[in-house]
Amino acid sequence: MYILETKNLKKSFGGVHALNDLSISFAKGKLTGIIGPNGSGKTTLVNVLTGMQAITGGAVVVGGKSLHAIRPEELPRLGITRTFQDVRLFEQMTVGDNIMVVLTARGPYAALTERSERKREERVKEVLEKVGLWEKRHQLAYNLSYGQRKLLEITRVLAMDADIILLDEPFAGLFKEMVKVIVHIIGELKAAGKTVLLIEHNMDLIRELSDHVIVMDAGGLLAEGKPDAVLARHDVIEAYLGE
């Protein structure tokens, strides 16, 4: 059963077709690795799926519902969340508040009067302790190290408890120990039945984590299937290495 699909999805920037009639599907509760050379449209796909960039043509189907436009504010309702290749946190807020703020459900008048409730504080503590950032809860996000910033962004994803999670190069630039921590978190997300889309250049990690792999090239689908089979294909190797 597919929870997320694209139907002839197009995204153009002037004359450049970043996504070119792309039709792919993501199975519910599975981790799909998305690979492809630089400029193949991977990040554009995530940006379009999360409403950060407008759809030029085609549609995105989420839970059976066809959408021709997505706005970022609709993502929580659609059960989608994401991380960014270049980490985007609320820089001038503390680590704790970065998580607290995504746990807020606001009614028309509640926002002016509601205080940080114990339930939310407990949830913040739970997720921050899980990733080892609880000790840093009073620090501004701006002051965290690169690895901790990546980790906090993934923690935000954990806190939001969305069904579909899009991870855009979560391991880029991380040292080994931090990679292990994030691999563990992704494992937990899989175990919890989340649908994960993972953009990654490290083929060992793609092999280790993916149930299914999609290879993109020039904004289109080049290949898809089981990780070992896809990564052994000659055309995939050629697209990556330019042979």
Binding site: G51, E73, R82, Q92, V101, M160
Partner: peptide
């Protein structure tokens, strides 16, 4: 207040603020 935190989040990155609900 959470209203204050939401305002801070919008100050920092309005697009991400929308994305997280």
């Amino acid at each position: 207040t959470l209203f204050g935190k939401a305002v801070s989040a919008i100050k920092d990155d309005e697009e991400v603020a929308r994305m997280v609900g």
